[in-house]
């Protein structure tokens, strides 16, 4: 799926830039961008290299924050706080992630990630979420293939439920809005609908033949056959 979207995005970019450079499509207001780089195709080329550089810069910035949160998470884990959180929210978590055993550290990390997202603490949310993914992957018998729990967790994450959309409020305020906070209520409703849709679709789709986990693994050296749990 990601494969096709990736190919589609790049081919769409080449096609769109191509038709504009050949003069087949005229876009209003596109002259400025073209004048700056010479042609649409040149702008696309430059964007490819710039983006590759940006990706590494983002990761460099993330490494320090990751290290800090992973250090704190190890302490929280060893002190039993993560398990405590997982146990407190057991009734909800058991429904959302039936494949993850009670009190597993993955549950605690997921709760902390979702809480950080709700509070709009992006810097904390990503490292906590990555910790949760690492813990979920320990329960994954088929490395390289997403588990149901991972997909449900990411469904909640991509729906992006936030109590206070701080960045958006900032943009509205900067534009001179008299009532920027008017959108807080509408955002809550819309992101609530998005989150519920995400969970429900994830639960339905995980059973469809097209997305179901394969019953048999391809026979590889380090993975046990069907019907057996991972022995590692």
């Amino acid at each position: 799926m990601l494969n096709w979207i990736w190919i589609g995005l790049i081919l769409a970019a080449l096609l769109a830039a191509g038709v504009q450079d050949l003069g087949l499509v005229q876009l209003p207001g596109a002259d400025a961008a073209v004048a700056e780089k010479g042609s649409r195709m040149a702008a696309v080329t430059e964007a490819a290299f710039d983006s590759a550089k940006t990706a590494v810069n983002i990761v460099i910035g993330l490494i320090g924050i990751m290290a800090m949160w992973l250090g704190l998470m190890r302490l929280a884990d060893k002190a039993g706080l993560v398990q405590l959180l997982a146990r407190a929210l057991k009734p909800v978590l058991r429904r959302l992630f039936p494949d993850v055993p009670d009190g597993h550290p993955a549950l605690g990390a997921m709760v902390m990630n979702i809480a950080a997202n709700m509070l709009g603490l992006g810097n904390a949310a990503t490292p906590l979420g990555l910790k949760a993914m690492e813990e979920l992957d320990k329960l994954n018998p088929r490395k390289g293939t997403a588990t149901n729990a991972m997909c449900t967790f990411l469904a909640i994450n991509t729906a992006g439920f936030t109590l206070i959309p701080a960045t958006v409020l900032g943009i509205l305020a900067a534009a001179g809005s008299k009532t920027p906070h008017a959108i807080i209520s509408t955002t809550l409703i819309a992101s609530g609908v998005a989150t519920i849709t995400a969970i429900v679709t994830a639960k339905i789709l995980e059973r469809l033949p097209a997305f179901r986990l394969p019953p048999h693994d391809p026979p590889t050296a380090d993975e046990p056959g069907a019907g057996k749990e991972a022995t590692r």
């Binding site: 799926m1 990601l2 979207i5 990503t126 979420g129 990555l130 993914m133 690492e134 979920l136 992957d137 994954n140 490395k143 390289g144 293939t145 997403a146 991972m150 997909c151 990411l154 469904a155 994450n157 991509t158 729906a159 819309a190 992101s191 609908v193 998005a194 989150t195 849709t197 995400a198 679709t201 994830a202 789709l205 995980e206 469809l208 997305f211 986990l213």
Partner: peptide, 27 residues
């Protein structure tokens, strides 16, 4: 999806993309 799945080297993402985009559309 790229960051979270990438961190545990998952390339077969199953229904994650469809779910994410459906939720987005509903929102």
């Amino acid at each position: 999806l790229a960051v979270y799945f990438g961190s545990v080297a998952i390339t077969r993402t199953r229904h994650a993309v469809v779910v994410g985009l459906t939720a987005e559309l509903a929102g």
